[in-house]
């Protein structure tokens, strides 16, 4: 499989990374090199192999349903680049 510029542009948009034309050209080369490298996996026979679910092999630990956190809006908002009236503020979204 080989990526073309349009596909890389699409992926970059999915990942919300703005890329100009020159960057796209460079990325196409790099990504194809990496994809070419990982392509070797197709040599491995993985019939009847279950994908690894977790290295530890144990199940999910559960916590009790108790309110133990929150109630500190100031800490939540402390690092916000833009905030107003206790909210995070972002460029207006039109729905």
């Amino acid at each position: 499989m080989s990526l073309d510029k349009a596909t890389v542009a699409k992926i970059a948009h999915l990942a919300r990374i703005k890329t100009d034309d020159a960057q796209l050209d460079a990325m196409v080369g790099d990504l194809n090199t990496i994809l070419g490298f990982v392509e070797q996996l197709s040599e491995v026979n993985t019939d009847n192999v279950e994908p690894l679910a977790s290295v530890t092999g144990h199940g999910l630990p559960l916590r009790a349903d108790v309110v133990t956190d929150g109630a500190y809006p100031e800490r939540v908002l402390a690092n916000a680049p833009d905030r107003a009236h206790g909210y995070y503020a972002v460029p207006k979204v039109v729905e």
Binding site: D82, A84, Y87, Y88, A89, V90, P91, K92, V93
Partner: peptide, 10 residues
């Protein structure tokens, strides 16, 4: 979306 003309609040 209706609290500010330029911003959405989260």
């Amino acid at each position: 979306h209706d609290q500010s003309p330029t911003k959405s609040y989260i």
